[in-house]
Simulated scan of single mutants.
Amino acid sequence: MAFFGLTALGAQNPFESLAKSHAILNIFTLDEFREGWDAVAKGKSEIDISQVEALLHVVYHGPAPEPELILFMNKLDSERTTPISWEEFASCYEELVAKIEADEKSLSGRLGSAATYTSYDELCKAKDKGIKLETGPKETLVAPLTAVQEFGWNAHESVEKRTIHGKKSCAETIYASELYKSGMYF
């Protein structure tokens, strides 16, 4: 179904692929991170913890997804004051990739972390009891999963407050009210 990592039908598990907790760090090679390291370090053998985000920006060709940034910052200890060497960064990358691949193997056949219910029966029971979720799709997904969710996904950004005043009367209603007042229609 997939040819060189591409598939015409989209992700095999959209709940997992769009979950905010889903990491895609393992799609990059260590050589790609080395090229990013060379671009950020500019000939130095070490970088500061503050430059890790810039390194990920180079590798991802844009802002890195939040899960990847959090993974690196937690693994490298974001409170550290000592610089990071390439060897330390490379071993951190390899450990994170091994963890991601192990998580993917354990999740095979199950729904992703963005799914709330594991069966239709659970969903129906929650609906019948009127149980509402604490988090909505915007808190668990990075993008809308369906076309219906696209409508209103960023509504708070584009909605402007304006007051709409309806017509009090038009020519037809004035005519009808005059007919009623004259006693023609009861």
Rank of each mutant, 00 (worst) to 15 (best):
A64C: 02
T82Q: 11
V59M: 05
T81D: 02
S50M: 01
A147Q: 08
E16V: 06
L133S: 13
I131T: 11
S106R: 11
E104S: 04
E150M: 10
S119T: 00
L71G: 01
H61F: 07
T7Y: 08
S113G: 12
T146V: 06
E87P: 00
K167I: 11
Y180D: 12
P137C: 09
L55Q: 02
A115G: 04
A143I: 09
K168N: 14
K105F: 04
V59Y: 08
L141C: 02
L141K: 01
E94Q: 15
Y93N: 10
P65Y: 11
L96A: 04
K138H: 05
Q12S: 09
D77T: 04
S177K: 03
P83R: 08
A115M: 07
G152T: 06
T140W: 13
L9H: 14
R110K: 14
F28A: 00
S113F: 10
I84M: 03
E150I: 05
G152C: 07
I24L: 06
F15I: 05
L107E: 01
E16A: 15
G109F: 05
I100S: 02
K167G: 13
L76D: 01
G109W: 07
P83T: 10
Q149A: 05
E122N: 00
F151E: 12
P83C: 05
S78P: 02
V59F: 09
L56A: 01
N13E: 13
T82K: 03
L9W: 10
L133E: 14
L55Y: 02
Y120P: 04
F151H: 13
E79N: 12
S158A: 08
G62L: 08
A98K: 15
E172N: 08
T116D: 07
V59Q: 05
E94R: 15
I174C: 07
N154Q: 06
K125Q: 15
I47S: 00
K181Q: 12
R34S: 04
T118R: 14
R34N: 05
T118V: 08
H57P: 01
L141M: 04
I47H: 00
N26Y: 06
D31V: 10
K181W: 06
E79S: 14
Y117H: 02
E157S: 03
C92H: 02
L9D: 13
K161N: 14
W86L: 04
G152H: 10
A147D: 15
P137T: 09
R34I: 03
D31T: 10
T146Y: 09
H165Y: 13
L30T: 15
G36E: 12
F28N: 01
D48T: 00
N26H: 15
I49N: 11
A98Q: 15
I47C: 00
D121Y: 12
V142R: 14
K44V: 01
R110V: 06
E178R: 11
A2T: 10
N74H: 09
I49S: 09
H22C: 08
V97N: 00
S158H: 13
S158L: 13
K99Q: 15
L18T: 08
H156S: 12
L55H: 02
K138Y: 07
F28L: 01
Y175C: 09
K42W: 03
Y185F: 11
A64H: 04
L25A: 00
A126L: 08
